[in-house]
Amino acid sequence: MRRIDELLQRLRDASAALPAIEHPGPFDVPDERDPLALLEERVCALGPDGESSFAIVEDNDALLTRLRADYPERLRAEWVVGDEAAAPMFYRFGLTEAHHLVARSGTIVLDVARALESLSSLVVEEHVVVASVDRVVMTLDQLPPLARGAKTRILISGPSRTADIEKTLVIPAHGPCRTALYLVRGTLDFGALVSRFFSSSDRGAG
């Protein structure tokens, strides 16, 4: 604590003579484009070789049907869902609910109580993300504060990548190779989706 006070004292002394500069206030970004269309364009552009996909479905039932069709191996493959904290490396799939989406940067926003709860977006080969269309904002400036109870926010814009060797883009580096985004019109019921998607009574269909 003594060192902290010492540092603060140093800063108080050093900044005393600096000109007083006001905070510029919020930054306003007028943008007339359609956020949903832009989101689709930007999400797809982040995975030019099919590493990112984008789909909109009508309601929770349609979403379930779509996921069952796209992931027929759902009961055999290893999944990590939502905030399961156990972590072998790596799972085949992760299923996550996004709290917000940002159109301009094609960003998926996860609000979690602990970073460890975002593993379903991290230690997986393919990251499946579901959200409601009304969670789309235009720019990062318009993102609301963290969800109640959340202390950490993770922004995901495209698959894990590196270009450290001769600027050659390589996907993935350490995280997921693929991100699939499914938006549902109306309110998403993530809990119900998870229990129905993994319901053993559907085993025969898997």
Partner: peptide, 14 residues
């Protein structure tokens, strides 16, 4: 890039 693939805004300090 418009944004890096990941941004972690970490507030769980334990």
């Amino acid at each position: 890039q418009r944004l890096t693939s990941y941004v972690s805004e970490i507030g769980d300090g334990d």
